[in-house]
Design a protein around this nucleic acid. Structure first.
Lengths: 206, 206
DNA sequence: TGTTAAATTAAACAAACGTTTAATTTAAAC
DNA sequence: GTTTAAATTAAACGTTTGTTTAATTTAACA
């Protein structure tokens, strides 16, 4: 599906509003006003509000898989590659956080079951990659055996999003101003925490 | 605020629908129909839809703090108390998962800033409890020093919710049927994973 | 410059929204 | 049994919702 500049502009605005106010909390008139276009343009270009969401997901969920594979194919130690993978995953989540927030909100919504098939397939492929990597590390004797591999991604994703959702709360804990640099916190605090957590998990005896 | 049976019945239905379809995705008519009452009863009893949400949060968020303090005051090792705390936290999240999902969805919604003051205060108190406990463990030489304490709760909460939000996906990974026992998975897989993760994090050298 | 298709608009649509009204039923108190 | 307040109802309120219509403007091409 080819998108022109105007369509991309609409998607950008929709992404912002959906992630801030939810799908149901955002009206097509909100989007039209923020994008400075006529309401009818949304139906004209995308057909419906639901299809707009579908187009948005399709437009954003490009391939994480290739990046992960190239990181894990490097000729460094398992622990170094694990560190690099955690960095990659968090970078990915962080730059696409708005989209992921929408997916989180709408994925479990029974009335919006469709449009998520691509997302599911992609997620399964990504799981297989980390599963293979961890098993190779276990065979090499670097990682311990008794690890619930399927819960590694949830630990990374979940920690990021719980922090992100409760940002003002954690800003208060760290005595940061309300408009503290999210990028810096993610880079300097959250990423090392998760690198350490996952490494610890995979090397912890009993 | 005293609530009669009918009000509690309405809150129960509202909790279910809010957590399934979101606040904006649930109409007062949806609630009325599911609770088998007249629409006007919601305004009659609670004043408005927003105040219904407020009443729901107030009705559910009772004191986790006392439970946590009694667990941590036990005369066992730091690692044992840590295990017990993780169990308590997950039990708490699990039994209140619907409410937490609503809080997650609405807490970051700028148009719903109010009604969350109690939640914030409670969260800060809970943080202080685990902070004191970890510091005492560090002074006793059981836990390592270089730990981002503020990210321990997010790791537990986040992992649970990422799993919970993507339940069908993880059911597929584990070759479980669609109606597999969530309770059992949380108890037998998720809890040990998080116990291990947090223990590993707090004892991991460098 | 005239033709044609795409882009854009204001207006209208029916349906659904949260809330209020005013009338009626229920149930408790005296 | 009468009184009184609470509970419950159907109907209507004015908005807002997503979408469509039909008319107009824009822009590209011959």
């Amino acid at each position: 599906m080819k998108l022109n500049d105007k369509q991309i502009q609409i998607l950008k605005v929709a992404e912002k509003l959906f992630s801030e106010n939810g799908f149901d909390g955002t009206s097509v008139r909100n989007i039209a006003k923020a994008a400075d276009i006529n309401v009818a343009m949304i139906s004209y270009y995308f057909g419906s509000k639901e299809k707009l969401l579908g187009a948005l997901l399709l437009h954003r969920t490009s391939d994480f898989r290739l990046l992960a594979e190239s990181v894990l194919a490097k000729n460094t130690s398992h622990l170094d590659r694990l560190d690099a993978l955690v960095i990659l995953v968090i970078k990915r989540i962080h730059s696409n956080r708005r989209i992921y927030k929408i997916i989180y909100s709408e994925f479990s919504n029974p009335s919006r079951n469709s449009d998520f098939e691509n997302y599911k397939k992609q997620k399964l492929k990504n799981y297989k990659i980390i599963e293979d990597f961890v098993r190779s590390g276990q065979e090499a004797g670097v990682f311990t055996k008794n690890v619930e591999i399927s819960l590694i991604y949830p630990t990374i994703f979940g920690t990021y999003f719980h922090f992100y959702y409760n940002k003002p709360f954690y800003a208060a804990i760290h005595n940061l101003s309300e408009d503290f640099s999210l990028d810096e916190f993610v880079h300097k605090v959250l990423t090392p925490h998760l690198q350490k957590t996952i490494k610890a998990l995979l090397t912890y005896e009993i």
